[in-house]
Design a protein around this nucleic acid. Structure first.
Length: 295
DNA sequence: AGTAGAACCTGAGCGC
DNA sequence: TGCGCTCAGGTTCTAC
């Protein structure tokens, strides 16, 4: 469910409660999520202090004081919520609502900061793992990840090189985490729309077959669109963060305004375009785009 | 080598 | 009300 901007929003929301705080206690309520929890997961975390909270692609990385990293992935439906310790739900008449709200709470961290951090994940596509800091970049989860979509590592020349000769559709190439790490279905659709590029265009046609001195305009447009759409979504998440924390403590979901995603049959939002948003299926995933202004 | 499809799992929404 | 079907923002494995 969450893409990179949502994960970054979660990271920012968790940081004040989790970073520089000790895990006084942890409840692990089932043996596995997508994968089994590591051996003695709870015992290894109990008493540890989180020295920093980072992110790589869609992975949350909690650095621990013993040199290990608690790696957390939200899968499709994972979320965290933060509550003050001892702030229990109203009993009695509201019992039903309470039990509904806490279904699928799989892991609960009791932090020395006085907060309770609960991981909830109905579909259980998420997971948690413990990896020594020194082994992280060579670990199977991380060694094949491509560049982050924001920051200066992603540029038009990189994208042209990575896509050169590829026949696979642009949509699929952008979802390939080995090239750009962190883009998901929504923001790929949005970035392609902003750059006026068709999701079905072969990735290799982003530029000429032979390397040129300067990257082509399509690659430039796409890189700018990717950076913009991700940066705007992170900003939107940040601005919604305060509201969420103050209401029910849940993190990770916020209101988006998409230009194409989930807007099948609705008018294209490109200024001056009279097209209609269309939905197609590419490698089993929905793609939303405007056939009129995306070429 | 690259790609489509299935798999993992639960819930929401919709037509009947 | 309920049943059956489709779909969901991720990742990884298998089969062509």
């Amino acid at each position: 469910m969450p893409e990179l901007p949502e994960v970054e929003t979660v990271r920012r929301g968790l940081e004040p409660a989790m970073s520089a705080a000790r895990i006084d206690d942890i409840e692990v309520r089932r043996p596995d999520l997508r994968f089994p929890f590591p051996m003695a997961f709870g015992a290894r975390l109990r008493g540890r202090t989180v020295v920093g909270l980072g992110r790589r692609a869609k992975y949350l990385l909690a650095d621990l004081d013993d040199g290990e990293v608690l790696v957390m992935h939200l899968g499709m439906s994972g979320s965290f919520r933060i509550e003050a310790e001892g702030d229990e739900a109203t009993p009695g008449a509201f019992h039903h609502a309470r039990s509904k709200a806490t279904a699928h709470d799989h892991v609960v961290f009791h932090m020395s900061s006085g907060t309770r951090i609960t991981y909830n994940d109905p579909r259980r596509f998420g997971f948690m793992s413990l990896i020594p800091r020194a082994e992280l970049t060579e670990h199977a989860l991380f060694r094949n990840l491509g560049v982050e979509p924001v920051g200066n590592t992603l540029d038009a020349a990189y994208l042209e090189t990575a896509f050169r000769g590829k026949v696979t559709p642009l949509k699929a190439a952008l979802l390939d985490q080995r090239i750009i790490a962190g883009l998901g279905n929504i923001y790929v659709c949005e970035a392609l729309h902003r750059s006026g590029l068709s999701p079905t265009r072969p990735a290799g046609t982003l530029s000429s077959a032979r390397p040129r001195k300067k990257p082509g305009p399509r690659a430039e447009r796409l890189v700018v669109a990717i950076r913009d759409v991700i940066a705007e979504a992170i900003a939107a998440g940040g601005s919604s963060l305060r509201d969420y924390v103050h209401t029910d403590g849940s993190l990770g979901y916020f209101q988006h305004t998409f230009r194409v995603y989930d807007r099948e049959g609705e008018p294209c939002r490109t200024p001056g375009c009279t097209g209609t948003v269309r939905r197609i299926v590419q490698s089993g995933r929905s793609t939303f785009y405007c056939p009129r202004c995306q070429r």
